[in-house]
Amino acid sequence: MSETNLIELGIAIIVLVGTIFGFISSIGFIRLPDIYNRAHALSKSSTLSVLFVLLGTFLFFVMVEGYFSIKLFLGIFFVFLTAPVSSHVICRSAYRCHVELAPESVQDDLEALIEEYTCKS
């Protein structure tokens, strides 16, 4: 096996790991009970999967094509910047709209604050 083949094999494994993470996060999206838990599975494991896929693409361009693509790093950076904001806003608006927590939930510290807040205004 030549050197290029070996490099391509390694890159293929990285991209495969990324897609496996994405697959697991979609399984979690189906199986978890309520919107807050789904936000965990959906926003974060998919961040990891995007990281792996873009990293594999970056390594492919550097090692095989000999081309240093800064755009892929920008992609990783912006996904990391925007994914938590979106999941935060979705969870927050869900809580403000009184979406119930899953029945398994054991603790809710936020209830008092929201009640106080809505009574004041």
Binding site: I24, I27, G28, P33, E104, S105, V106, L110
Partner: peptide
Amino acid sequence: VIGKILQPKINIKPGILS
């Protein structure tokens, strides 16, 4: 999180911490 998701029976106790 992945370990939690892939369990055959999902056994989690979610909640909100301050």
